[in-house]
Design a binder for these strands. Structure first.
Length: 480
RNA sequence: GGCCCCGUCGUCUAGUGGUCUAGGACGCCGGCCUCUCAAGCCGGUAACGCCGGUUCGAAUCCGGUCGGGGCUGCCA
């Protein structure tokens, strides 16, 4: 049997990390088994769906490195892979169910149903909605034709149970006495999620439904519907949910949890991929950092964790730093360059020269731009960090360090890191200043901050003229 | 309230009856290195929710309990 799995995001917002991870696990499973991964768009909620979000979702999955074999944009044997284009098909399934007496029209109003649930609950039972069939389908059809508002529900037996094997959770049993005659078609005529999703899974011959645990209790509905359609049942696997720091299901109120936010924050897709794999799954043993191929090779649904994972990006920050450091030097330059905007050739060269040193010090891409910003600032526009100034520029060693440094650098022949290094160290020796006191004032003078890329290399990249200008300027500022 | 799921360091996890005085990673703390900051290296902190049972032996199996979560909609 060829594995066929899918992910079905709703374009009601940009892709959420929960859906990204669900897609990732489905993709890993498909690739591990040489199966088919499908991306379909669940846009039955016409009100909230937006074409702009469809594009965002596609971008986010592609960015993560997931590719799909059938689905939106790439096509396949099942049409457009958009539920909004399949309304006729859903209607056809419902008509058939109606004709066979497996579904019925329900003319009860929302208020009546509320009352029903309240009463059932007051009686100590489940707030179950059932038995709404009038027993006269023809009369119902006539009322419907007349325009009477109604929903269409699946007729669920009062007794019995639904049992299935969940790959991740084991044997699941649900007593039908607790199951609603759930709604298939809303009074607006549009299909519900349960209908559209189940029909699609059947039509697209999905073999494994891998989704979040929040859908676990809806599974009996989907199974019942699948059986009513006379179709083969897929295998289910319910993944653990992602929690926010407060232990609740991750959602917008935990801040921006869209994939777009991660793309913008300067995370590398391979780092995010690796990080997300680790949320609810592990290749076993001590493996923490691995490639896509390694993940695909090791992935198994049965190894997926059962308990929810807190989505904490602290570890992602570290992992991202690992991936950034592992980049080829020119690759790093290429990824940071777009963040720098327009640069004249000299600044560009200075950036490229200093980049390898910045690379080691970067956890998220935008940090790199901060570290090299001093290269692109006019000599007389260097803004001094208040704390750094207090700590390094108001001490008794400040003036001699600056004066000695300037004198030493004025004597440097070829302006190279080695020459700068030698000259400054010789000066330290001559002045009897330790490196900390002798060099920090120079760093502040050069960059405005006590924290920067290595000093000698920074000077080399900046150039002789700017370096000396900045040191002299700082010296002059000492008197103010 | 009802139905269902889950419970190993702060976080992500390894662990499928003995090799667990519970391993790794992130974080945090300390040290080394060092021109700052990182990186790197070394060391430290910290967990099997609780109670019963099964067993020669339980983090691993069973029951209960407590705790957390999900669903309970004409959202998905």
């Amino acid at each position: 049997m060829t594995v066929r799995v899918r992910i079905a995001p709703s374009p009601t917002g940009s892709l959420h990390v929960g859906n990204a991870r669900a897609g990732l696990f489905n993709w890993l499973f498909a690739r591990h088994h040489g199966g088919t991964f499908i991306l379909r768009i669940d846009d039955t909620d016409a009100e909230r769906s937006d074409e702009r979000h469809v594009a965002e979702i596609i971008d986010a999955y592609r960015w993560l490195g997931l590719d799909w074999d059938e689905g939106i944009e790439v096509g396949g044997p099942h049409g457009t892979y958009r539920q909004s284009d399949r309304l006729d098909r859903y209607a056809e399934v419902v008509d058939d169910l109606l004709a066979r007496g497996l579904a019925y029209r329900d003319f009860r109003t929302p208020d009546e149903l509320d009352e029903l649930r309240r009463a059932a609950q007051a009686a100590g039972g489940p707030p179950r909605v059932s038995g709404g069939a009038s027993g006269d389908p023809d009369a119902d059809a006539a009322r419907a034709a007349f325009g009477d508002p109604h929903t269409i529900r699946l007729a669920v037996p009062d007794r019995g149970e639904v049992v299935f094997e969940d790959v991740i959770r084991g044997t699941m049993r649900f007593d039908l006495a607790n199951e609603d005659d759930f709604v298939l078609v809303r009074s607006s005529g549009l299909p519900t999620y349960h209908l559209a999703s189940t029909v699609d899974d059947v039509d697209y011959a999905i073999t494994h439904v891998v989704r979040g645990e929040d859908l676990l209790s809806s599974t009996p509905k989907h199974l019942l519907l699948t059986r009513a359609m006379g179709a083969a049942e897929p295998i289910y696997a319910h993944m653990p949910l992602l929690f926010g720091p407060d232990g609740k299901k991750l959602s917008k109120r935990h801040g921006d949890t869209s994939m777009a936010a991660f793309m913008d924050a300067g995370y590398l897709p391979e780092a995010v991929f690796n990080f997300m794999c680790l949320l609810g799954w592990s290749p076993g043993g001590d493996r923490e950092v691995f490639t896509r191929d390694e993940a695909v090779a090791a992935f198994d649904l049965a190894d997926v964790q059962r308990n929810a994972a807190v989505f904490d990006t602290t570890k992602l920050d570290w992992l991202n730093g690992e991936y950034i450091r592992a980049l080829d030097a020119d690759d790093f330059v290429a990824r940071v360059r777009p963040l720098l905007g327009d640069l004249d050739p000299a600044d560009e060269a200075a950036f490229v020269e200093l980049a390898p040193l910045v690379q080691e010090r970067t956890k998220k891409l935008p940090e790199a731009t901060e570290q090299v910003a001093f290269l692109f600032t006019a000599d007389d526009a260097i803004a001094f960090d208040e704390g750094s100034w207090q700590k390094q520029m108001t001490k008794d060693f400040t003036r001699p360090a600056l004066e000695g440094g300037i004198a030493a650098l004025e004597g440097v022949g070829e302006w190279t890191t080695e020459a700068i290094d030698a000259a400054l160290r010789a000066n330290l020796e001559a002045q009897g200043l330790n490196p900390r006191k002798g060099l920090q004032p120079l760093r502040v003078a050069l960059t405005g901050s006590a924290v920067s890329p290595p000093l000698f290399e920074s000077m080399a990249a900046l150039g002789r003229e700017s370096t000396l200008t900045r040191l002299r300027r700082a010296l002059a500022l000492l008197d103010d």
